[in-house]
Design a protein around this nucleic acid. Structure first.
Length: 361
DNA sequence: TATTCGTGGCC
DNA sequence: TGGCCAAGAAT
């Protein structure tokens, strides 16, 4: 009997992956790899950036839309940044879209349209950090990089019953991943760890009976895998308030602006708003409207961001002339072409309930 | 090391 | 129903 080239845990996981891997639009399955197909580095990179802190189900339609609009990294590099932001609208964490464009430009201009094939080379590109550089190196280029995301942290913390809380325990967990990562099939190993975390070793009610690690898992031996991974307590979310102003002209156009490139919703499109402050009375009056008009209160929209909750009082008015010192007027029936984040779509819908329906209200 | 960055689904 | 979570990066 030949000696396995892998640690036994690694071999068990790869065997599980061969039978139970998920089919994903950017993935080349083990069977297709055996027929000689290779993962496309552009597809892997694009999917990995979209998947940062984002679920597979949310990413799928965006991934297919981007490939349709921009089939190669050179196409993406040549695209207007406004088009990229509009295509990304709704997916969140918009710095990813700005860095995606910068990264495509760097690959096109400095690497002749070919992605670097090492972890270090990838790590130097915009929007590519520790996780994404390792993931692309392993999945697209068969480099034995140690890939650790939230799924892997959960699997490893349970397998070894690591009690120290994240993020402090990250280096120790990374060492465990490195020891398990094989020279052969490192990309499949990384994807297998993440599939395992997504489908078996889930945060709540893990399906330990189906897990290839269930004979070795220390958390399972202790009868409480759900308590891992431990995490440091997070602080509570403050509430901020502000006002948003929806002006519609007689021609059926709405006043829009572009947010500055840095910070929250950077580079995205918005309706005029006040600053969002912690003051309880901020935003309840139309004092800071973009121009004098008969502003009517349309309602209050609540939106929860990562680190604060926003209560936005929405005002609306109809104008005869299209006054605008900064910004532009855009047809209400064509708002899908704009880079409007979800909170702005909520505000517009509060003022114009049918804005995003077929007839545009 | 700690904070800032979206959004939607889930129980 | 509200807290938790998702293939994290930049600063």
């Amino acid at each position: 009997m030949p000696i396995s080239p892998y640690p036994s845990l690694t071999a068990a996981l790869l065997a599980w992956y061969d039978r139970h891997h998920r089919d994903l639009p950017w993935r080349v399955s083990p069977l297709r790899q055996a027929r000689g197909e290779r993962a496309d580095p552009y597809h892997i990179w694009l999917s990995e950036v979209m998947l940062q802190q984002t679920t597979v189900q949310a990413v799928k339609p965006y991934f297919l839309k981007f490939l349709s609009l921009w089939p190669t990294v050179k196409d993406l590099a040549a695209a207007p940044v406004e088009d990229v932001m509009a295509a990304w609208a709704g997916l969140g964490y918009y710095a990813r879209a700005r860095n995606l464009k910068k990264c495509a430009e760097a690959v096109a201009a400095e690497h002749a349209g070919i992605f670097p094939d090492t972890e270090e080379g990838l790590r130097a590109l915009p929007g590519i950090g520790d996780y994404t550089s390792a993931a692309v190196a392993a999945i697209a280029f068969d480099r034995p990089a140690a890939v650790m995301d939230g799924n892997v942290e959960r699997v490893i913390s349970r397998l070894y019953a690591i009690s120290d809380p994240l993020p402090g325990s990250k280096p120790a967990m990374k060492a465990k991943v490195r020891a398990l990562t094989p020279e052969e099939r490192p990309g499949d190993f990384a994807q297998a760890m993440m599939d395992l975390g997504a489908t078996i070793c889930t945060p709540k009610r893990p399906a330990c009976a189906l897990c290839p690690f269930n004979g070795d898992c220390l958390a399972l031996k202790e009868h409480d895998p759900e308590r891992f991974p431990e995490k440091v307590a997070k602080k509570e979310k403050p509430v901020r308030q502000g006002a948003a102003f929806v002006a519609v002209s007689q021609e059926g156009r709405i006043l829009l602006r572009r947010r500055i490139d840095s910070g929250l919703l950077g580079g995205m499109t918005e309706v005029p708003t006040t600053a969002w402050t912690a003051r309880a009375d901020g935003g309840s009056t139309p004092d800071h409207a973009p121009f004098d008009a008969d502003w009517q209160m349309a309602g209050v929209v609540t939106h929860v961001f990562t680190h604060f909750e926003l209560r936005l009082t929405v005002f609306r008015t109809r104008t005869e002339t299209e006054i605008a010192t900064n910004g532009w007027w855009h047809a209400v029936t064509d708002l899908d072409s704009q880079a409007l984040p979800t909170v702005m779509k909520k505000a517009i819908t509060q003022a114009i309930p049918l804005a995003f329906t077929r007839d545009g209200g």
